[in-house]
Amino acid sequence: MTMRSLLSDNSRYIESFHVFLKNSTEHQCMLEFIQKTLPGIISSIGDGKSPLNVLSIGGGSGEIDLQILKQIRATYPAAAIHNEVIEPNGEQIRCYQEHVAKTSGLENITFTWHQETSLEYESRMKSSKEMKKLNFIHMIQMLYYVKDVPATIGFFHSLLEPGAKILIMILSGNSGWARLWKKYGPRLRLNALCLFILAPYIEEILNEAGLKYQSYELPSHMDITDCFTEGNKNGELLLDFLTETCNFSKTAPLDLKAEIVEDLKKPEYSEMRGGRYFFNNTLTAIVIQS
C-alpha cells in the first residue's frame, strides 16, 4: 500500500472527520462565537432589507449553518431569509436537508442547495450575468480546498451589499496544525486540492487588497490520546485526519510515522492534562466588511 490523499476516499474522510468532531471542541468554540459575538457582527447587514440573502460556501451537513441562521432570524425576526448553499458533496447535502427537516425555529427561511464547488458557482454566476447581491456570506473551514484563494475572496467580496459581511473560519497560526504543516507539509502534500493555509495567510491577502476586517481567536483542542495506542481505530482515523493521508498508520514510512507521533506529544503541539494529550486546534474567525 502506498500513501494517498485522504480526500481520495470519501467514506474514509467522512469517518475520520466524524471522529475528529467527537474528539475536538471545534464545533463548541464555533457555537460560542456564533452565540456571543455574531449578533453584534450581523447587526448592520439588514438595514430594513427583506429578503436577506445568505450564502454558505462549503456548508457541509449544515449543523453550523443552521445556528448562524437562527442568529440572523433572531436579529431580523420580520425579514424573509433565503439561504443558498454551495457544497460539492452530495452525501453532505442530503444530511443538511435532513437537519433542516428536523430543526425548529427556521420559519420564513427558504433554502437552495447547489452540488458544486465555489469555483463552479463563480463560473456559473459569471456566465449567467445574474450575480445577485448578498447580505452575509460565510466560509467555514473550506478555503483549504480552493485553488486560488485571493481570487475566490475577491469574487465573493464583490457580491456584498453595502453593510454586508463575509465570515471566514480557518485554523489559527498559533495552532498545532501550523507547526505540523510547516514541518511535515512537503512530505504529506498528496493532493493539490488541499492547501495547507492558515489565518495569517488570509489576513495577508486582505491587507494587500485593502479590505477592512477584524480577527477573533477561537481556542479549541482535540483529544489525540488514542493516536498513541498502536492499532486503536479512532487513533488511526485521527492520524488520517491530522495528516490528510488515507490509512496513514499502515502506509506511511515507519520513520515518518514515528517522527509525527513523537512530535504530537510535545508542548508546541499538544497539552497534557489528566494523563491525556490535547492537540491545539485553535481557530481564527475573520470578518470582512463590504
Rank of each mutant, 00 (worst) to 15 (best):
R179A: 12
L180K: 04
L180F: 10
W181A: 05
K182E: 15
K183I: 12
K183N: 13
G185V: 06
R187M: 08
L188H: 00
I202T: 02
E203S: 05
E204K: 06
E204C: 03
I205T: 06
I205E: 00
N207Q: 14
E208W: 00
G210T: 00
K212M: 04
Y213V: 00
Y213M: 03
Q214E: 14
Y216A: 02
E217M: 12
E217S: 15
P219H: 10
H221Q: 11
M222C: 14
M222L: 15
I224P: 01
T225H: 06
F228Q: 04
L239F: 15
D240V: 05
D240A: 06
F241T: 01
L242M: 13
L242H: 03
L242N: 01
T243Q: 04
T243C: 12
E244M: 15
T245S: 07
N247W: 08
S249C: 14
P253F: 05
P253H: 09
D255R: 14
D255W: 10
E259K: 09
I260L: 13
L264T: 09
K266R: 15
K266G: 10
E268A: 14
S270W: 02
E271W: 05
G274Y: 04
G275Q: 05
F278W: 09
F279V: 04
N280S: 08
N281K: 08
N281E: 11
